[in-house]
Design a protein around this nucleic acid. Structure first.
Length: 455
RNA sequence: GUCCCCUUCGUCUAGCGGUUAGGACACCGGGUUUUCAUCUCGGCAACAGGGGUUCGAUCCCCCUAGGGGACGCCA
């Protein structure tokens, strides 16, 4: 089995493209096959080297590496031209010199007549010699139906009347996408084509090219689209980010892959999949046939999961390498324990790093929060004095001290805990008090309480 | 507009003619020797509508509605 991912380098890789790549890659890996990468860069205006690099880097981040050197469609123009001309020679394509003005006119009339706008076959039987300035059009069958068995969507068929004689060679002699894609898949011996279902009609056209060449058809699987959370097509405006932006925000690749693969695919009731789980269980036939909306909450859930699951040392090195922790924090001898604690409730790494500040810097307590601190200052003062005597070597002893202090003063925990959390961290959302006291350290804690008492 | 595809809890999904329609996220509530969060236990919540076929339809067929896609000398 051989699969491929064939992006056009006209933009960064976003969620939808990344998902397609993962599916194609997994389909190959799950079947001991090869996964190839092909850049469809026949649009010279919009294709950029910058995007080629960005796409390769994105795939690399996700752990996807092609099994052969990436192929560039633009390197194969001569081959495409040659075949196009050959089709012409065999009478399977024809030269056409209809002006774009007339094409537009025809489309307008068709629309008015509630017909599908399409080329009307004006030059089909003119037998024009192919000369500079003309386009070459493919002769689509005039009747019958084109159909195929999609691995995900099942039977797809269309009346050939709906398909028009599309251009395979432009008037400047350059080959077009649908033609190149069909030829390349053939030459690369791709056995399984996996792409978004926005390619459905392209597939129908490409099948006819392949049929005209008496070639065998690959198997096709069309993935339903990923829509934005509001159900619209993913676009910049609809929140389609460069996949590497997620890396920058502190999403782990394991989380991204797990989320993306679960967006449409399922295996029993399992939610968490390692790479080897995926390779073992992935089967394209278990992909859902309907479109899915992007969900930030679910991505966050997976990210939090992998943040908690990953090896602490490795995670720490990764965080420091990509998010450069502050000097002060790196000098803290409890830094590993702090990260270990703080990853429990973190959605992503940049968020986690932000939450680290109060462990090495006295917090600024906003006036808003200050108002929420309600505690008897003399009580807090005696708490502080007794705290000075507590052994901070052991977290458990701190817990024991808090318990006894509460009992002695006959008070409920929240009465002490809530204001103390604010004083210590400047936040109302933070880990348990004994964890905080222990990890912030005795000296800083006492300092912060003093600061409050003196304010 | 024409053609194609899709339609199960708010979201991601399981189901493949007979199920109390299952799981996960989110949300809500209880518990964790009293804590916002974590953890844990529990709860809420769905077969788009209408016709068939069938002893029986979430599941098969048709229609309607809604959503998405394609309709380029872009890919």
């Amino acid at each position: 089995m051989k699969t491929r991912f064939a992006p056009s380098p006209t933009g960064h890789l976003h969620i939808g493209g990344a998902r397609t790549a993962i599916f194609a890659w997994l389909q190959a890996k799950a079947n001991n096959g090869k996964f190839l990468l092909r850049f469809e860069d026949t649009d010279k205006e919009r294709s950029k080297k910058e995007y080629v690099d960005s796409i390769i880097n994105s795939l690399k981040w996700l752990g996807i590496e092609p099994d052969e050197k990436p192929l560039f469609q633009s390197d194969r123009i001569n081959r495409h031209k040659e075949i196009a001309l050959d089709l012409h020679k065999k009478g399977l394509a024809y030269s056409c010199n209809v002006s774009s003005e007339r094409l537009e006119e025809v489309r307008k009339i068709q629309q008015q007549n509630k017909q599908q706008p399409r080329y009307d076959g004006f030059s089909r039987d003119l037998n024009l010699p192919h000369e500079e300035g003309n386009v070459l059009r493919f002769k689509m069958p005039l009747d019958g139906i084109t159909s195929f068995e999609d691995k995900i969507l099942k039977k797809i068929s269309i009346n050939n009347k709906e398909l028009d004689d599309f251009i395979i060679l432009r008037s400047d002699g350059s080959p077009t996408y649908n033609f190149c894609a069909a030829i390349d898949d053939l030459d690369m011996q791709i056995t399984n084509v996996i792409r978004g279902d926005d390619h459905l009609t392209n597939t129908l056209k490409q099948i006819n090219i392949l049929k005209a060449m008496n070639s065998e058809l690959p198997e096709y699987a069309h993935l339903p689209m990923v829509l934005s959370s509001s159900g619209k097509r993913l676009s910049k405006r609809e929140g389609a980010l460069d996949i590497l932006e997620y890396k920058k925000m502190g999403y782990l690749k394991e989380a991204m892959v797990n989320y993306l693969i679960k967006l449409g695919w399922s295996f029993k009731e399992q939610e968490i999949f390692s790479e080897s789980d995926l390779i073992e269980h992935f089967d394209i036939k278990n992909v859902n046939s309907s479109a899915a909306k992007f969900s930030q909450e679910l991505l966050d859930f997976y990210n939090n999961h992998y943040l908690k699951e990953s090896n602490l040392e490795e995670l720490f090195v990764y965080i420091n390498g990509n998010f450069s922790l502050s000097e002060k924090f790196m000098r803290n001898d409890k830094k590993f324990e702090i990260v270990d604690l703080m990853r429990e409730g973190s959605k992503n790494i940049s968020n986690l790093v932000d939450e680290l500040t109060f462990f090495y810097e006295d917090p600024d307590i906003s006036d808003e929060l200050m108002k929420n601190i309600q505690i008897d200052k003399s009580l807090l003062d005696s708490f502080k004095e007794e705290l000075k005597e507590v052994d901070f070597k052991d977290k458990l002893l701190i817990g024991v001290f808090i318990d006894s202090f509460l009992t002695k003063n006959n008070m409920k925990f929240p009465l002490l805990g809530k204001p103390l959390r604010l004083i210590l961290t400047g936040k109302s959302n933070a880990p348990s008090i004994s964890d905080l006291l222990y990890l912030i350290g005795k000296e800083s804690c006492i300092n912060r309480i003093d600061n409050y008492l003196n304010s």
